[in-house]
Amino acid sequence: MLTVFLQFLFSGLTVGSVYALVGMGFNIIYNATSIINLAQGEFVVIGGLLMWFFLESCKLPFLLAVALTILSAGLVALIMERLTIRPLKTNDLLIMIMVTVAVAIVMRGLLMFKFGKEPYSFAAFTEGDPLVIGGAVIQLQTLWVLGITGTCILALYAFFNLTIAGKAMRACSFDPTAASLVGIPVSRMIMFSFILSAMVGAIGGIAITPISLMEYDKGPMLAVKGFCAAMMGGLGRGRGAVVGGLTIGVLESMTAGYIHSGLKDAVALLILLSILFFRPAGLFGNAAMQRLKGH
């Protein structure tokens, strides 16, 4: 009985860690711009597919492939921000969000053109049999994903709270005008936030591809789940996305295990909705902060 429960839990953590990584990317851009970047899922796909390209097609060493993949994703984000977000010069969030939708469609078109429609995968980071805990198995790659998620959180926390650049980036979100008055280059900060979130997305893509495979049109589903994770934890809260993602993942697998697998997404969404209704700022959100930001 306990074994079965543990297995559901591990399965939930595997899925949840994927959502958490995507959710974190949403938070970075949201923190700097208040934009919801719906192309976030595509960055994850770019991560997975480019990693395959560098690793399996170009036969590059693992770490070099990782570095190239992350840099390329950052470059794509830079181009995206320069060509679409910056020239927009509007405060209308709706338009900006729709632009990210349109950009996501362009990226999907390009990915399909380059990689075709079939799924891709590469070997897990470490070879070996899955870990057995209390009779339940957990894949080694899941541990990698969890570890990477944790590292990203710590790194981002340190960046946003301890470095000048990070603090400046947060200031841009609270009040762009005031931020520029105190000499923060707001538009450069927005660009950095896009690059950073794309890199986090790409890291996520690299980490999850051995588990879930990657194909050109996985982005929208990842974006929706990641968005829900970020919302559940409270938009803009780094660790909120992680807790949100893991919560949704575990809820899904518990529903699949104990209720009915066809309803797993519905139950997770219902719980998300009730959290929104009863605690609109999310589990970790701060209501006063939300008012300050005018949302």
């Binding site: 968005f227 829900c228 938009l235 997404d265 219902l270 909705l273 929104l276 609109p280 949302h295």
Partner: peptide
């Protein structure tokens, strides 16, 4: 009671639940 992104996600959740 929700606004902006939060209303958006509530309606998104509704739409997905209907789909399921």
């Amino acid at each position: 009671r929700l606004k902006g992104h939060y209303l958006a996600v509530a309606t998104l959740g509704f739409g997905e639940i209907i789909h399921i």
